[in-house]
Design a binder for these strands. Structure first.
Lengths: 201, 201
DNA sequence: GTCGACATGTAACCAGTTACATGATTAA
DNA sequence: TTAATCATGTAACTGGTTACATGTCGAC
């Protein structure tokens, strides 16, 4: 199994590689640590790769000189490999972050997909789904509010705080939308009910 | 090349398959048509597969009895294959849409990723990026407002209108966030500027 | 006469996931 | 003793993209 390295010039790497580099920005770490960190940070607005992929990404980055690998032997635990960003890695990361036209944002909002295909659904099922969604979003919103309260005056977490603010505004928008959508759907059902009582046939 | 069909019982298919089925809900269509329709509808909140994938997905769905394929010879144009949802396909779609725990929503918001890794960037580059983003979102918001105005009283497009409303609330939240973030970053730069004038070194 | 819309498809590739495998330590 | 955490990795697969190939028609 050959490791494909990244070209030294114009290193066009997949976003995953830059995510890994970016996370290494907060200090040297093992693949295991990276996975944890990704799960509790960028997974909320970007995504978190599988462990196996982090490991192979790290190997690629090491082979390309973007990170250094240091084997650390441990007595009580299995050995670990700690990775650290090199100046070249940091430069590649910076160039990518500052590039003129970043990749477009994408989302897979399965709630909206369901609503869009709403006429294929039993309206009551749709309503149940939206109510559940609303509860879920309310919870997330409250959690984010708590987190934001604890970080908002910590300049060390200035940028994290900004992303948490984004989460707050997004969840708020989501709640408002879900409430509005529920009202409209319920109203519409009242006007022309799609089927008399009893379980959907 | 063997076509793997979907099991007749408990047909667990990838979301793409359900997207295709859902789009066929608005009538029989060719793969080409499906791509167009996907691009101007669900691509905005879910995603739009490559043409080649739509074609192979259709073949799989046909082999599984979820859709029927009809070859239509045309004189002036190349032949087309028109696909239509079968009752089994519609049932599978309904079951998927109404399932109890839908796949979690995901997003790849590269703006937030950049902000999160903001300390690796030149603050001025970050500011430029956010300003550009803000303009972009304002545009989308205006376009959505126009579309919503034309659709909101058409009961045929009731569900579309709901998803457009979601887009409006989301873009509004995005604008508010970007404005706030810009203010905070600029304020912070004013307090402790990171580097004296001149191009970033 | 060239470009874009119509229309379908194959081949090569890559990104990313799941499942499997190993094995020690610590807490319930 | 069972499960969770620490720690790494391989193999098989699938989902999805890009590039290539083919060919017609109508508009400019």
């Amino acid at each position: 199994m050959t490791i494909r390295t990244y070209e030294t010039q114009a290193p066009v790497m997949p976003p995953t590689a830059y995510c890994v580099l970016g996370l290494l920005g907060s200090g040297p770490m093992s693949g295991y640590d990276l996975k944890q960190l990704a799960d509790q940070s960028i997974s909320h607005f970007y995504w978190s790769p599988a462990r196996s992929q982090i490991y192979s990404e790290l190997r690629r980055l090491a082979a390309s000189g973007m990170v250094t690998e240091e084997r650390i032997e441990q007595e009580t635990r299995p050995d670990k490999r700690v990775y650290e960003m090199t100046p070249r890695g940091r430069a590649a990361l910076k160039a990518w972050l500052e590039q003129d036209d970043p990749e477009p944002d994408t989302s897979k909002n399965s709630t909206l997909l369901r609503v869009f295909f709403g006429r294929e659904m039993d309206p009551q099922a749709l309503i149940r789904m939206l109510r559940a969604k609303l509860e879920e979003v309310r919870l997330v919103h409250r959690r984010l509010a708590d987190i934001h309260a604890t970080v908002q005056h910590d300049d060390q977490r200035f940028y994290s705080a900004l992303t948490i603010r984004a989460g707050l505004l997004h969840t708020a928008a989501n709640m408002a939308w879900a409430e509005e959508a529920l009202q409209k759907i319920e109203e519409r059902e009242r006007l022309h009910p799609s089927s008399a009582g009893g379980p959907a046939q």
